[in-house]
Design a protein around this nucleic acid. Sequence first.
DNA 1: CTCGTTTTCTAACGTTCTTTAGATTAACGG
DNA 2: CCGTTAATCTAAAGAACGTTAGAAAACGAG
Lengths: 214, 214
Amino acid sequence: MFPEEPVYQQLARIGKALASPVRLRLLDVLDQQERTVEELAREAGVPLKNTSAQLQQLRAAQLVTARKEGTRVYYRLADERVSRFLGAFQGFAQDRLADLRDAVADLLGSYETVTADELAARLADPATLVLDVRSPGAFAAGHVPGAVSVPLRELEERLGELPGGKEIIAYCGGPYCVVSPRAVELLRGHGFRARPLEGGLTAWRRSGRAVRGL
Amino acid sequence: MFPEEPVYQQLARIGKALASPVRLRLLDVLDQQERTVEELAREAGVPLKNTSAQLQQLRAAQLVTARKEGTRVYYRLADERVSRFLGAFQGFAQDRLADLRDAVADLLGSYETVTADELAARLADPATLVLDVRSPGAFAAGHVPGAVSVPLRELEERLGELPGGKEIIAYCGGPYCVVSPRAVELLRGHGFRARPLEGGLTAWRRSGRAVRGL
DNA sequence: CTCGTTTTCTAACGTTCTTTAGATTAACGG
DNA sequence: CCGTTAATCTAAAGAACGTTAGAAAACGAG
């Protein structure tokens, strides 16, 4: 119709990739680490066949890449620019939509959070304890340097291991991960001072900071 | 299905708003200046009723706002953060999709461009002429300080007015506006040194630089 | 080679989105 | 108050998309 049409059609390819809740969820899971289709389906709570179908679309939009190993296919974000853009996208959306902010508050509660910058500044502070409440596998794949691993599931029975006087900064995976707010709630209920890391390990990584593997 | 679902549904609202070529086109036109529905329909080359329908969606996503004056409704981007995000979105998309880069090259040709930063640095340079090749109305609504207005339509017959030795930096409206590349072609064909401004006046404004009205 | 596993492909169904015609609303001018 | 203009609302058709079942491909193991 107009000569610009093909350009806007191409732009819309990226928009369309971001137009489905399922795909956005998959991108967030992939932003944490490489995964197989099956793992993705399980973690995102999406049927396997649909997961595969949506991954094809993300691949067509060049947001993810796949690598085959034996019978398994491992997906990951195409590169770290995708992760940074997703951060910008999520930030922009939260900026725009009050309904989104409400949904996030509903999901995560409204604890005062710690930013990645603040966490970085306090890494060396002996009065701070950084607590990784994800699974041991996720911790092994990469964590904030100096963090202590206590999965949420074990947290209640291991409260005795935690030092009393320190402020605890708890984190989990992505920006909408519910695990660290739950940990903070539990910790506060037992008299600890605790705050969640805003945006989880994903935000830490997006801010360009190093992650330590085991 | 999963507790995060409502959050991703809200995020997808923004994605959906960016999933249609027509809406992306409208956003680009609106990024230049406020317009009525009729003007938008004409400039974007979209039927009026469809323009109105798509504007409702953009409004629901809070990307644009409307203001009524008499029988006319004037639309504009909700604020300058929307413009900056659109810039990031377009940059990201061009980064990802070779097909998009091809479509842009097809549309605009592949002239060496001038960035907004470079243009800013050369504003005071007497060996540079900044040429606004848009309509007089667009020039009046806002232009690069010091730019000379010669609409593309009149450029050929007014070539004599242009100084010989200077390099000409021509610009038009948005990042996919075809007018300034055409002007550059015409100018080069007549022996002038000329380059287009990358991203047009929109990029200039997005970079936070002042625009002068009449 | 054959079997089991993982993933994708094909095809289909139902839903949502895009687009447009027709009716309607809102505002101004006579 | 009526006519005109600008825009929206309603409703409906067609296209595109999400989702999933069933078949098929790719691979490793035995």
